[in-house]
């Protein structure tokens, strides 16, 4: 009876430790921060809804890191990374679309000039 009790305690302790000591997601935090700076480089800002979402999650992840709630920090940081990458892709898309619109306008102008040149 005593020996089985001894065997149970370490296993139980291990389970508890596993929960409390989720490793600190430092690598993920770095990845997420990099995704943010890449997004800033192409001019992403709070006007993009996904960016605001990402920023909120990043701040909450950073707070969770301070209080050592590592599981929570990792989940938030992973989501923030993809949110901000989506925001970046949307901005790049908008820019590209604007460029296409400008080219179309330029074509219209050229065609008009061609028509009016005798």
């Amino acid at each position: 009876m005593k020996s089985s009790y001894r065997r149970v305690v370490p296993v139980f302790a291990l389970l508890l430790a596993g929960c409390a000591n989720d490793p600190a997601p430092s690598e993920q935090m770095k990845l997420t921060t990099q995704a943010f700076s890449q997004a800033h480089d192409v001019g992403v800002d709070s006007s993009v809804p996904e960016y605001s979402l990402a920023k909120d999650k990043l701040e909450r992840a950073q707070k969770a890191m301070l209080t050592e709630e590592y599981k929570k920090a990792r989940v938030l940081a992973e989501q923030a990374e993809l949110d901000v990458r989506l925001a970046e892709a949307r901005v790049l898309n908008n820019k590209s679309q604007t460029h296409v619109d400008e080219l179309n306008k330029q074509i219209a102008r050229l065609q008009k000039r061609l028509e009016s040149t005798p």
């Binding site: 993809l82 949110d83 892709a89 790049l92 590209s96 460029h99």
Partner: peptide
Amino acid sequence: RYSDIAQEHANLRSS
């Protein structure tokens, strides 16, 4: 999110 991002990249490429 990965699906959305993939879709956006495809749109970007086509534009």
